[in-house]
């Protein structure tokens, strides 16, 4: 009996691993295809796609696509732009959205519930519907710079950052988390003489590690991976262009697919590094929110 059950357990484990490996392969295929293809000349790349060779580094393998891609576009600049915009937006967003959520959750003021509902309702408004009004708006907004007041935010970092700081999803994540924090902790801090700001800084935020990680990850991925339409219409100069707009450099008359793959491989690196560093927090956060990335 013991042998049978041990064998059974072994078989079950083997099947489980087989399924997991297959699932992992399905998810890894695009990534493998991208990296392998980035090493092949476009002609070979296209002919290989009809067979399994597409996933294997065989044939004429070289880094020439990378050289060509770096010559075609200022990739380093694009990556830096995206990383800068992402880091600043996420930092500001975590701070301001957590403050807003703190106010919505703990402070009593007239219209609190209504305003939170309105904020959350913006989740269902597709960005495309407000892109043009927002463009008109930012194109005339004043800004106090080193040379005094100037008008129009186009072709700047701030136009890519400021409209994305306030974010209903991030506020919602914080509100949900704050609601679950024991209310007595806040009341104890109040009774101990803490001001609301001190409660935010000394009690609530130090206990908000999990939601900070969740919000940071979701927001970072959105800012780095999905910023296309808005920068496309508000940034015309190369100096401020983010990675996704930079992709356009490779879709000219004859698409050099090898270079496209090389470009994609390079811009994926920061995301992969970010993921590997925060892997544990990433999995925990997705599991805790039930929000898919």
């Amino acid at each position: 009996m013991a042998t049978i059950s041990r064998d059974n357990r072994g078989l079950r484990l083997a099947v489980r691993y087989l399924v997991l490996v297959l699932v992992a392969l399905v998810f890894a295929f695009p990534l493998v295809f991208m990296i392998v293809s980035s090493l092949k000349p476009t002609a070979q790349l296209l002919s290989d796609t009809s067979s399994l060779r597409a996933f294997l580094p065989v044939g004429d393998i070289s880094l020439s696509n990378y050289t060509a891609a770096f010559q075609r576009a200022p990739i380093g600049r694009f990556v830096l732009n995206s990383v800068f915009v992402t880091v600043v937006t996420v930092t500001a967003s975590l701070f301001l959205c957590s403050l807003a959520a703190f106010s919505f959750t703990y402070l009593k003021w007239r219209g609190n519930g209504l305003l939170l509902s309105i904020a959350l309702a913006t989740l269902i408004v597709p960005f495309e519907t407000i892109a043009i009004p927002l463009l008109l708006f930012v194109s005339r907004l004043p800004w106090l710079g080193l040379d005094g007041i100037e008008y129009g935010w186009l072709n700047t970092y701030r136009v890519q950052i400021i409209p994305w700081i306030a974010d209903a999803l991030t506020i919602f994540l914080f509100v949900q988390y704050f609601k679950d924090l024991p209310r007595e902790l806040i009341e104890a801090a109040r009774a101990e003489g803490a001001s609301w700001w001190q409660i935010y800084r000394r009690v609530v935020m130090p206990l908000s590690g999990p939601v900070l990680a969740t919000a940071a990850i979701l927001k970072s991925l959105k800012m780095y991976n999905e910023q296309y339409l808005w920068p496309l219409i508000v940034v015309q100069d190369e100096a401020h262009r983010p990675i996704m707009v930079g992709l356009g450099y490779f879709f000219q008359l004859n698409v050099a697919w090898g270079e496209v793959m090389a470009y994609l491989s390079v811009i994926t690196l920061p995301v992969l590094a970010f993921y590997l560093v925060l892997q544990r927090a990433f999995i925990a956060s997705i599991a805790s929110t039930g929000v898919k990335g």
Binding site: E184, L185, A191, E192, A194, R202
Partner: peptide
Amino acid sequence: IAMVFQTYAIFPHMSVRENVGFGLTI
């Protein structure tokens, strides 16, 4: 006033020393 709660309401991210001294720090 000072209040003691049923659920203790001591701050989990602070040591006992920091908890006891919280009001004084503030």
